[in-house]
Amino acid sequence: MRIGVPKEIKVHEYRVGMTPAAVREAVHHGHRVMVQKDAGLGIGLFDSDYETAGAEIAATPDEIFERADMIVKVKEPQHAEWKMLREGQILFTYLHLAPDPEQARGLMESGCVAIAYETVTDQRGGLPLLAPMSEVAGRMSIQAGAHCLEIAQGGRGMLLGGVPGVAASRVVVLGGGVAGTNAARMAMGLEAHVTVIDINLHRLYELDMQFGPMLNTIYSTVDAIEEYVLGADLVIGAVLVPGAAAPKLVTEEMVKKMKKGSVLVDIAIDQGGCFATSHPTTHADPTYVTDEVVHYCVANMPGAVARTSTFALNNATLPFTLSLADKGYRQALADNQHLKAGLNVYEGKLTYRAVAEALGAPFHEADSLLGA
C-alpha cells in the first residue's frame, strides 16, 4: 500500500503522522511511504532521517493526496485538505467531528474512508489512540493553568503550591479519566489542593485508593460542581463522552460568580468544550477573558510539546496503521472490532452513532455498509 504523510497545516501544529521509525516498520512490511518535505522539521525529524528509513520525500501535499492509498495525519484535515481527499482513500487521524459539521460534510462529500483515532477502542473499554494525547494534555493543563494564574496573564496572582504560611491554590478537575488523572497528578506534585469530580463511583474509588488523602474525590452533581467551581482558583475541564459533543458542566452563570482572575482550562475543547463560555483558541493566541475569568481553550494542546506528543502517538497508532496497510481497510476492520469502532465516515455516510446524533444526521451501521 502507498501511505502518505502530509505536513500538518493547522496553526502552530508541529506533530507528524509517522516518525522515521514508524516509516521503517511500514517499509519492512512491504509498503511505500511518501512523506511531505519538512513534515517533521519542527521537531527535529529531518527529511534525511525519513529517506534513511525508506521513505520517498514529496514536494507538495497535492502529490501526497493524489498518490497515496492511505493518509496518516495527526490533526483533523483542514478545508484545503478536504478538497484533495478522494473516494475510497483511507484517512487515519484525529477527527473530532461532533462539534464540526463543516468538516463532516467535507469528508462525506469526498467519499473517503475516515477512521478517527479518538473512537478506536480496546479490550478494556479504553481509547488507546486518544490516551497518549490525553496524558499529555492533562499534564500540560496544569502548566498552562499555573501560567494563566500569574498577574501578567490576567490571573489572580497565585502560585499553585503557595509557600509556607500562605495557602495553596485550589484546583478542581472535572473528569477522572486519563486526562483528568494526569492533571490531578501534576497539580498534587506542585502541592496544590486538588479535587476531582466524576460521575463514575468506581473511578473515584480507584483514584482514592491510588492517591489517598492527597486527593479529594467528589461525586458529580450540579450542586457539587457549582460549589467546587465557585471556590476554585483553577478548573480543568477533562470530561469525555467518546465521539460525542462534551457536556456543558459549567454554565455562564457559574462563570460570572467565579473569583476574579480564576482560570478555566478546557481540555475537552476538541469536542466542543465543557464550559458554556468556551470557544477554541490557538497556541498563537491561547487565552481570552470572559467575566474576569481567564479561559485557556487551545484545541491542540499537545502540539506545544510536539516532539514528545509525536513519539507517544506513534507508539499507539503504528499497529493499527500497519494492520490497515497490510490487510486493506475492509479486512482490517472485519478482523478487529476495536479498529472498526474508529470508522466515522464511509462513502459519504456517518458510521459513528454519537457523531451522527450530535450533527442531527442519519446514522448507518458500519457492518451493513462494509458487508455490502
Rank of each mutant, 00 (worst) to 15 (best):
G165Q: 01
T251F: 11
M1D: 04
D69H: 02
H295S: 02
T308R: 09
K75G: 12
G273V: 08
A168G: 04
M254T: 10
E292P: 00
T119N: 04
R307F: 14
D208H: 14
P280A: 04
A244V: 02
D367Y: 09
E8W: 11
A332H: 12
I267S: 08
A356K: 11
Q123S: 15
V250Q: 03
G54F: 11
E118Q: 08
G273A: 12
K340D: 06
R32H: 15
C112H: 05
S48G: 06
V23C: 10
G348I: 02
E252H: 14
T321S: 08
H31C: 05
Q103D: 00
I225R: 09
Y296R: 03
A184Q: 03
E191L: 14
G40K: 13
Q210S: 15
Y288N: 01
L318N: 05
L230N: 02
P286M: 13
G111V: 14
G44A: 04
D367F: 07
N344A: 09
G162W: 00
R32M: 13
C297W: 15
C148S: 15
V27K: 15
A245S: 10
T195A: 07
D100E: 13
E226W: 01
L370D: 03
G126R: 06
A334E: 02
T121Y: 05
V136T: 13
F211L: 13
V255R: 07
L127F: 04
E87V: 03
V263I: 11
I199P: 04
S141K: 02
Q143P: 00
D100V: 13
V235C: 03
E206F: 00
Q153R: 15
G162V: 03
Y14C: 05
R203N: 14
G328F: 01
G360D: 03
A358R: 01
R203Q: 15
R2E: 01
